[in-house]
Design a protein around this nucleic acid. Structure first.
Lengths: 254, 254
DNA sequence: CCAGTCTGTTCACTATAATTGAACGCGGAT
DNA sequence: ATCCGCGTTCAATTATAGTGAACAGACTGG
């Protein structure tokens, strides 16, 4: 897994360092980037002008910015995920029927990537946008995915990314994680009780293919005041499971 | 504009050639890519392993595929466009009120990029997804943008990209384009009569900022059988203009 | 109005790093 | 059991990425 290339093309690494910096700084000039990255101005300039020539970044009166061609690549990458096409309409339904925020997450490189996010009419405002990557063990979504992976896969992921993260109150050791995952397997759904975001609760269920491998997970999130009692413990889990089952059926027959 | 970098970083060009090929082939192995790009296997392998290490592509049992980190970059690029945030809710409304397909397009590098696409309940199925890039002169959206640019800007774009394209029946010369743009300026809206896609019509209006510069355009598209007569010539143009005006107001006060 | 200081940019040199073919090991097919 | 095709490794060569110094243009403030 986390193996490093043995003949890495350093320019590729630099290219994405530049793009990342451009994102972090929300657009920047040559000098600013040069300082931020501790790379000579002329070198940065070479990269920027090449990226602009390739139309992957754009220069708006002196400020270089990430271009929309990445939107095309990103939309393509999402479109290629069979789960997206199949689950989107169902997750839209989940959002409108509950009125809350509904999500699709898939695993990639040992982390979770939000594939899609549907907003119900009461949905909470949340900063994270589509494509955001999160540690798997810090969300209900991620925990359902881990729960249905083999021990070796989970080990590999923990080795690679550790168990740190914003607010991993409950899960700090491999044992605590395993206990939690066993729990999730038994219940079929995972809960998130303000672990990652203050005041936000979440109910998630996995989506399995015909070989019982996880191909992703779906969830509903909402404020603690609407996510409590029977609705949180019974009603929503049942709803999420039902939607996940529908998706699983559509996945097998396609 | 279309100037080429004078110290281009060739590896950057190669990097995106590889990514592009990965997209065109919809995932590929080392050998296949090597043949497709006419680059030695070992070189391709160096790029692929580096890109995988950087987590921008993913290797699913021997097949390399474009990764979801581009979704993050793409979503970021879109989010950075002020027009997106402001126009999205209005375009959603346009879609649901007309029942058709509503779009947002912005110019970048002399071409049009679809920023967003909202589907009404009768919306036609169209293959092009968000992020797709099109020649400006081949769509109603693009024509409204060109119509509100300076002659120098239009010249630069025509010089760079020419007037070719899938079905530029009507516009083949700079003069025909100018005539069409004058028309668009006078009417305020642009029409698209199956020029780009068989059986598809479109009505578009520009979005201007307080300095009267175009920052993008919005439209509704639909099948010829629903886009005819008064609805096509009066009703829809009025509707699109109204929505564009609302967006313009929100743009100036933000 | 001009000096001073920021930009972004150009250019030519040098050492580094990308590129390469040949060779290896593995798995599936014949 | 053999062979072909795959991905992968490695070390050599030379192309090329990286670099600092110098230039030009735009602002700023004296």
């Amino acid at each position: 897994m986390a193996k490093t290339a043995q003949n890495p093309v350093k320019s590729v690494e630099t290219t994405f360092k530049v793009l990342d910096a451009l994102k972090d700084l929300d657009g920047a000039g040559v000098t600013e980037l040069s300082q931020h990255l501790d790379i000579p101005k002329s070198t940065v300039h070479n990269y920027l002008s090449t990226l602009e020539q390739e139309e992957y970044i754009v220069n708006r009166d002196g400020v270089y910015e990430v271009g929309l061609q990445f939107l095309e690549l990103g939309a393509y990458a999402r479109h290629r995920e069979k789960l997206f096409k199949i689950a989107k309409p169902e997750v839209d339904r989940l959002a409108s029927e509950t009125g809350e925020l509904a999500n699709i997450l898939v695993e990639e490189h040992g982390r979770g990537s939000y594939l899609y996010r549907a907003r119900g009419d009461k949905a909470v405002q949340v900063k994270a946008h589509v494509g955001t990557r999160v540690p798997l063990h810090t969300t209900a979504l991620g925990k359902t995915i881990l729960a249905h992976m083999s021990t070796e896969q989970v080990d590999a992921i923990v080795d690679r990314h550790g168990l740190g993260g914003e607010a991993s109150k409950s899960i700090r050791t491999r044992e605590e994680l395993e206990a939690e995952l066993a729990d999730v397997r038994e219940r079929g759904v995972a809960f998130d009780d303000e672990e990652r975001l203050e005041g936000l609760r979440c109910v998630a269920a996995p989506v399995l293919n015909h070989d019982n491998e996880v191909i992703g997970a779906i969830s509903v999130s909402g404020p603690t005041n609407r996510f409590r009692g029977d609705r949180f413990r019974e009603e929503l889990p049942q709803k999420v499971l039902e939607v996940a089952n529908v998706i699983e059926l559509n996945v097998t027959y396609s």
